[in-house]
C-alpha cells in the first residue's frame, strides 16, 4: 500500500500542470470534434419548431390548444409545400363503431383500393406507399405463405384469390398495448389512431402488429404540392412528419362525416362493405348475419373489426 498522493501540491507541480494543460487541450479538441460530429443535428432542429417540440399529447390538449396546433400545422404545410390545406379534428360520432368487410369472391386483386388509399392519404410518392397490401393467394388455402403481393400479371389469375389486408382495427390491439408513450390508442368508434406529433418512432407497434398494418416514415414523405389532398384530418391523412408511425384510420376524416372510405369508393368490383356495427339495419350487420365471415389470424385473439367472406 502506497501513501503516495499525487494530488498533493508537493508531489511535483510541473508534471501535473503540464499534464493538466495537455488534458485541457485534449478535452477542448474532443468537445470540438464532438460538436462537429453531431452538427448534422442542426439541420433537424431548424425543421422542428419549439412549439412542436413542446406540444402535449392529443388527449391532453384543450379545445383551444388543439385549434392552435392545427393553425400551426396548416401554416407549416403552406410554408413547406405552398399548398393551402384544411386540417380538421373530427371527433367520433356517438353511437358508431365502424366495421369493414371484404367479399373475397368478388375481389380480383386489381389494386385500385391500394392506389386510392395512396392518393387520399397523402402517401409518399417514391415508394407507392399505401395502407393496403393485396395478397395473391392460392385457392383452397388461407396460408399466407403461399401468398404473394408482388404479382403484376392480368388478374384474376387461374386458381388464385385475392386478399387485401389493411389495419383490422382490432378490439384487442397488440400495437396499442405495446406503445410506451400512448401515442396510439383506440377511439370510441373503434378506429386505432396515431398522434403523429407524439410518436417517438420506436416501432414496437410495427413489430407487434400481426397484420403488417403499420408503416414507418423512414424519411419525410414526398408528395408534390399539386397532388396533395388538401382535405385533411389531424389524426388521419395530414402529411406525416419524418420518423413517426402511421396506419390505416378508416379514412376518419371522411367516415366521421358520414362518407365512405376512399378504398371502398375506388373498388371496381364492389367487394368492400363498410358501416356502423352498432346499427342493426346497416349493410355491415347484414353481411355479418348472412354471410359466413371469417377474420384473419383469429387464434391470436386480436378481435378484428375487419371481416372477410366468400360467397
Amino acid at each position: 500500500m502506497s501513501d503516495k498522493n499525487p494530488s498533493s501540491p508537493a508531489a511535483g507541480d510541473r508534471p501535473v500542470s503540464r499534464r493538466t494543460l495537455a488534458k485541457g487541450i485534449g478535452t477542448t479538441l474532443g468537445l470540438g470534434a464532438f460538436a462537429a460530429a453531431v452538427s448534422p443535428l442542426m439541420r433537424r432542429t431548424s425543421e422542428v419548431s419549439a412549439a412542436e417540440f413542446m406540444q402535449q399529447h392529443y388527449k391532453d390538449l384543450s379545445e383551444d390548444e388543439r385549434a392552435e396546433v392545427i393553425r400551426r400545422l396548416e401554416a407549416e404545410a403552406l410554408e413547406q409545400s405552398g399548398r393551402e390545406v384544411t386540417i380538421r379534428d373530427q371527433a367520433p360520432i356517438p353511437g358508431t363503431k365502424f366495421g369493414y368487410a371484404i367479399n373475397l369472391s368478388l375481389c380480383n386483386g386489381n389494386g385500385k383500393c391500394v392506389e386510392a388509399c395512396h392518393r387520399e392519404n397523402n402517401h409518399d410518392r417514391d415508394t407507392n406507399q399505401s395502407y393496403i397490401r393485396v395478397l395473391e393467394m392460392q385457392r383452397g388455402s388461407m396460408d399466407m405463405e403461399k401468398g404473394n403481393t408482388t404479382y403484376d400479371h392480368t388478374v384474376p389469375a387461374e386458381d388464385k384469390f385475392y386478399l387485401p389486408v389493411q389495419c383490422q382495427q382490432c378490439d384487442n390491439p397488440p400495437c396499442v398495448d405495446v406503445c410506451p408513450v400512448e401515442a396510439t390508442w383506440k377511439e370510441q368508434d373503434g378506429i386505432v389512431v396515431v398522434d403523429y406529433n407524439w410518436c417517438i418512432g420506436c416501432r414496437y407497434c410495427e413489430a407487434a402488429c400481426p397484420y403488417h398494418a403499420r408503416r414507418f416514415n423512414w424519411k419525410a414523405p414526398n408528395v408534390p404540392a399539386e397532388e396533395i389532398n388538401p382535405d385533411q384530418g389531424y389524426l388521419s391523412n395530414r402529411v406525416r412528419p419524418q420518423g413517426v408511425m402511421e396506419k390505416c384510420h378508416f379514412c376518419l376524416h371522411r367516415t366521421r362525416e358520414g362518407k365512405l372510405p376512399a378504398c371502398l369508393e375506388a373498388c371496381p368490383t364492389g367487394a368492400r362493405i363498410f358501416g356502423n356495427l352498432l346499427d342493426p339495419d346497416s349493410d355491415i350487420r347484414w353481411v355479418l348475419a348472412n354471410k359466413q365471415v371469417l377474420v384473419l389470424k383469429e387464434e391470436l385473439g386480436t378481435v378484428p373489426s375487419f371481416f372477410y367472406f366468400f360467397d
Binding site: E115, H118, N128, T150, Y151, D152, T154, V155
Partner: peptide, 9 residues
Amino acid sequence: SMKPTFKPI
C-alpha cells in the same frame, strides 16, 4: 380481367 397498375415499391 384487369391489369394491376399500382404496386408497392
